[in-house]
Design a protein around this nucleic acid. Structure first.
Length: 377
DNA sequence: GACGCGTGGGT
DNA sequence: TACCCAAGCGT
């Protein structure tokens, strides 16, 4: 369904040397077998569940970051059925800190769909996989090729960088026109019907490995690259210009006041709405300024005096992809009068500081609360 | 088609 | 420091 035979006018397939096109897969496979990565935790298995779990976690996330999360998830949820049966909050708590939380919600929904409507078995085609929540075109191809030997191409950041350099693809890969051309090119490079399932896996892994190890953004190690002799970037000295950089955009700064409402060793958390920043996570009550924060503290049980005397903690700066957030934490301590007077739809919970791990809490909030455990209490 | 969506590592 | 952006997807 994704294969389009009409070559982009900007990037006709015959613009590339036929020898490079046909030789690409076998050379990459040979290189991967000799020099690629073979011992990552999600390799050496054809279990679609494990492969799927790793691929979702690896979306926009580096390998070293994923490894401990992957281990914890597998231990807690060894099967897709176990994951499907888990409460939302348990899934979010295990995902907390990994970012892009819609991935966790889609992961959970996907597990439920697979468990309930596919009999616990992941579908084996790219098309069927891509209909599941959180699985797009590239992730579907990764799962299908690793688990089922499907001849389908991924197109992630690694592949875009490799293709841009080796084939000299111009333009920013985030631009739709350029990305479409890269899909077409990538599809044309997939090994043919003579390739075994193991070849297909090595090919897909090789695309990732080449981009992640030799052909990184900073200083590509062209001396070890199997495509150095043919690489447009290498032969023209344009490694630094390809792929074209993302157009710069200035990120706005937002400021928020967070209420650290304590009663004994417990802090009050509230559950954020399912969409938007930190969707579905548990976080501190927020307000737009100092006065609004005091009002919230009162609404949640603090006296006027205590609310007005909220004590500041060190401001916390947090950087998102698309904006910066300056957090102004304010502490209000109750004395056994913990109450929830604020009448609204928000779920709230009093959580002992030592049990924060059981809740899905955003990374900067977690950092803030961890800092409270020693000194103040 | 452009934008919203986290966090940490690299330079 | 202040960028850049990583095994992308959903809307």
């Amino acid at each position: 369904m994704y294969r389009t035979s009409n070559a982009s006018a900007a990037l006709p397939e015959n613009a590339y040397p036929q020898q490079l096109l046909t030789g690409f897969a076998p050379r990459l496979i040979a290189w991967q077998r000799e020099h690629g990565r073979h011992d990552l935790p999600w390799q050496n298995t054809r279990d679609p569940y494990r492969i799927w779990l790793s691929e979702i976690m690896l979306q926009q996330t580096q390998v070293s970051t994923v490894i401990p999360y992957y281990a914890r998830f597998l231990e807690r949820f060894p099967t897709v059925e176990a994951l499907a049966a888990a409460p939302d909050d348990d899934v979010m708590a295990l995902w907390a800190g990994l970012g892009y939380y819609s991935r966790a919600r889609n992961l959970h929904r996907c597990a439920q769909v697979v468990a309930q409507t596919h009999g616990g078995k992941f579908p084996s085609t790219v098309e069927a996989l891509a209909e599941l929540p959180g699985i797009g075109r590239s992730t579907a191809a990764a799962i299908a090729s690793f688990a089922f030997g499907a001849r389908a191409t991924i197109l992630d950041g690694n592949v875009k960088r490799v293709l841009a350099r080796v084939f000299g693809v111009e333009g920013f890969p985030g631009e739709k026109r350029v990305e479409n051309a890269m899909w077409t090119l990538a599809e044309s490079l997939v090994p043919g019907s003579t390739a075994s399932d193991a070849d297909v896996s090595a090919y897909t892994q090789g695309l990732m490995d080449l981009g992640a190890t030799l052909c990184g953004r900073g200083k590509p190690d062209c001396a070890r690259c199997p495509f150095a002799d043919d690489c447009v970037a290498k032969t023209t000295g344009r490694q630094r210009e390809l792929p074209a950089a993302r157009p710069k955009k200035t990120v706005p700064t937002r400021r928020t006041w967070m209420l650290v409402l304590l009663d004994g060793d417990a802090v009050m958390l509230e559950k954020r709405p399912p969409s938007g920043i930190w969707g579905g996570l548990w976080s501190l009550p927020e307000a737009a300024d100092e006065a609004a924060l005091a009002e919230r503290a009162q609404a949640l049980g603090a006296s006027r005096e205590r609310a007005a005397a909220a004590s500041p903690l060190a401001p916390l700066a947090h950087t998102f992809t698309h904006f910066k957030l300056d957090i102004e934490p304010r502490v209000v301590e109750l004395q056994g009068e913990a109450a929830l007077l604020e009448a609204n739809e928000t779920q709230t919970a009093w959580v002992p500081l030592g049990e924060i791990d059981a809740y899905g809490v955003p990374a900067p909030v977690r950092k803030l609360l961890d800092g409270l455990r020693g000194p103040l209490i």
